[in-house]
């Protein structure tokens, strides 16, 4: 599949802060590409440079196969953008907002169809200020696609939403992919990146620290599973098991053991528990995820 976007050696500094520190990446047409990282990793700065809202200090951007020096109106016509902070005219209705943004792109849309598509039909005549967080994000997504763009930038589209609203947004994003849209998504939610992404770039401190499909990234950890359990004597358990495993404390009472052999790990765990008298409760066996990848690479949690 062809690269719709190619970024080379992109840099952006704010005084002493390297917001974007010499990153390169590509995005394939028709895929959902996620940039995953904690707050302040440089995700938003990166996409806003590509959107034309910020100027890069250095680096090249190739869009639709052409090197872009300036994001002009003709390029913007083929881009859809949903910013991290959703800001619309508060006193315009949903319908008016969609029609206004369509007008700004010089296109006419069947606003009713768009509103239906984004499950806002009962809010057609509601003012923007009357919408809930989830409804507002759906409107932001509707506005982002009102010009029928080829490439869509979604900057943390589900931040601050409840689980139900988040799932609704995910469904919409997947539908957009089904329509052949290319989507670049920034997020600090591991589940979101896992659920939606064809390709993931993990960013931290302005750098891309890992990339690949979710499967590739998880495999790169070199382990198949995690055995997690809770104990009231976590210090004792940690000291006793450290010689056998790369055990880590997740919380004060929860410990996690990465393993490629679950059966053997459980055998050792229960033997030591029986022999040394520490309790083992709430045992969970789970597959590794992007959170583990991030933790493995940076030594920090995504939520830190």
């Amino acid at each position: 599949m062809e690269d719709i976007l190619l970024v080379k050696n992109l840099k952006k500094h704010y005084r002493d802060v390297r917001a974007v520190d010499d990153i390169s990446f590509s995005v394939k047409k028709g895929e959902i590409t996620s940039i995953l990282g904690p707050n302040g990793a440089g995700k938003t700065t990166t996409v806003e440079i590509i959107e034309g809202l910020r100027k890069a200090d250095a680096g090249d951007i190739y869009l639709f196969g052409k090197k872009i020096s300036h994001i002009d109106a003709s390029i913007k016509k083929s881009m859809g953008v949903q910013l991290q902070t959703t800001a619309f005219f508060e006193y315009l209705t949903v319908k008016e907002t969609i029609e206004l943004f369509a007008g700004l792109y010089g296109v006419t849309v069947d606003s009713r169809k768009v509103i239906e598509e984004f499950s806002l039909i009962d809010k057609t005549r509601s003012k923007v200020r009357e919408l809930s967080g989830g409804q507002l994000q759906r409107l932001a997504l509707a506005v982002a696609v009102v010009n029928d763009p080829e490439i869509i930038f979604l900057d943390e589209p589900t931040t601050g939403l409840d689980p139900q609203a988040r799932r609704n947004v995910w469904d919409i994003v997947l539908k957009l992919k089904e329509k052949g849209k290319t989507i670049i998504l920034t997020t600090h939610y591991m589940e979101e990146a896992e659920k939606l992404s064809d390709h993931v770039y993990i960013m931290d401190h302005g750098k891309i620290v890992a990339s690949g499909t979710v499967e590739e990234l998880v495999k790169s950890l070199g382990m198949e599973s995690f055995v997690e359990f809770s104990t009231t004597q976590s210090k004792k358990a940690l000291a006793l098991l450290e010689g056998d495993f790369k055990i880590k404390a997740i919380t004060r009472e929860t410990l996690s053991i990465p393993t490629t052999n679950v059966e053997q790990t459980l055998h050792v765990l229960f033997s030591k528990s029986h022999e040394n008298g520490f309790n083992v409760d709430n045992v969970i066996i789970r597959r590794p995820n992007l959170e583990d990848v991030f933790l493995h690479i940076t030594g920090r949690s995504l939520r830190d």
């Binding site: 809202l53 619309f88 700004l104």
Partner: peptide, 14 residues
């Protein structure tokens, strides 16, 4: 401050 003009600049509005 509210980011309304930034939102507009993502369209063909300069």
């Amino acid at each position: 401050v509210k980011g309304i003009n930034r939102r507009l600049y993502t369209t063909t509005i300069g």
